[in-house]
Design a protein around this nucleic acid. Sequence first.
DNA 1: ATTATAATGATAATGGTTGTCATTAACAAT
DNA 2: ATTGTTAATGACAACCATTATCATTATAAT
Lengths: 157, 157
Amino acid sequence: MKNRDCRGHLWWHGRFRGCGYRITLGREAILEVLSRANQHLSAEDIYIKVHPMYPNIGLTTVYRTLDVLVDLGLVFKFDFGDKRARYELAEGPKGAHHHHHLICTNCKRVIDYTDFIDEEVELLNQTEKGLSKKYNFMITNHLIQFYGLCDKCNNKK
Amino acid sequence: MKNRDCRGHLWWHGRFRGCGYRITLGREAILEVLSRANQHLSAEDIYIKVHPMYPNIGLTTVYRTLDVLVDLGLVFKFDFGDKRARYELAEGPKGAHHHHHLICTNCKRVIDYTDFIDEEVELLNQTEKGLSKKYNFMITNHLIQFYGLCDKCNNKK
DNA sequence: ATTATAATGATAATGGTTGTCATTAACAAT
DNA sequence: ATTGTTAATGACAACCATTATCATTATAAT
Ligand SMILES: [Mn+2]
Ligand SMILES: [Mn+2]
Ligand SMILES: [Zn+2]
Ligand SMILES: [Zn+2]
């Protein structure tokens, strides 16, 4: 019975209810899968992983729930160049764990990194501030991906 | 008769031939369209714009040519969240014009910005160097996009 | 328990992109 | 200029992730 507060609610229930969304078994199962996963799951990945605990779920519901979660900012949706969207929890019970990505253009491996160097955090803040002012643009989020060859693919050359 | 060198070759012919690719009318037309465009074109956009100067071209050829151009690094392929890929010349006769993007999550407008603040360039270099060492990852490119609300959409609230 | 309606799931449809294959065009060799 | 090799093309079909539809069910307020 983890990740529950004193009223038996999961950490995301409040945010959900606050926006008029209902708590359903399917949504519980999908969020359970997302919070357990440490990879970047596709909609079908999630659909398959949810089946054992909730066999009646439909793939359509997975897509719809993911849309809601993305809208709420609870989940990030990524495009890593394979043809399907990839989803990843934006924040968990322990809080946010924002990170950036290294993507190998050869083997398509994706490496998360959260260990930003100080300069990177500082630069991002300054850049966002500068851009906001210059273009009168309210920045709420960013996507930063570095492409290249991972250690394995680089050694093969 | 612009963008030609003394032998009547367009600027990209050398790179093309060097990789064993042939110069065809369709490819000339597609690159012409790409170099004239100042927006982010979809494959179909390009197909339509090429028609007047080369009516027999097929959409398949547009896709295939774009694949080649992306492989050669002459064109960048982007995903801005609408369902189609967007293409943009990576370098022209005047050289590269790398830039980053501001994307309005409301009206989907995309703003290019090349006027990096000095710190941004410096920080990017440092970050790439740090990541390369830490993960033994050879970085060849990066994608940086800021999401939020553009001036118009922000004022409507 | 009743009620209003959000959510679901089976299914069909959509649409951007890719595969197939016979034909054509590019270009190196002659 | 002619020929031969083969990359490139285009019409068309197929693919497949994602959406739309709609009758049914489950949620939560009353
Ligand atoms: Mn990640
Ligand atoms: Mn751009
Ligand atoms: Zn790799
Ligand atoms: Zn906007």
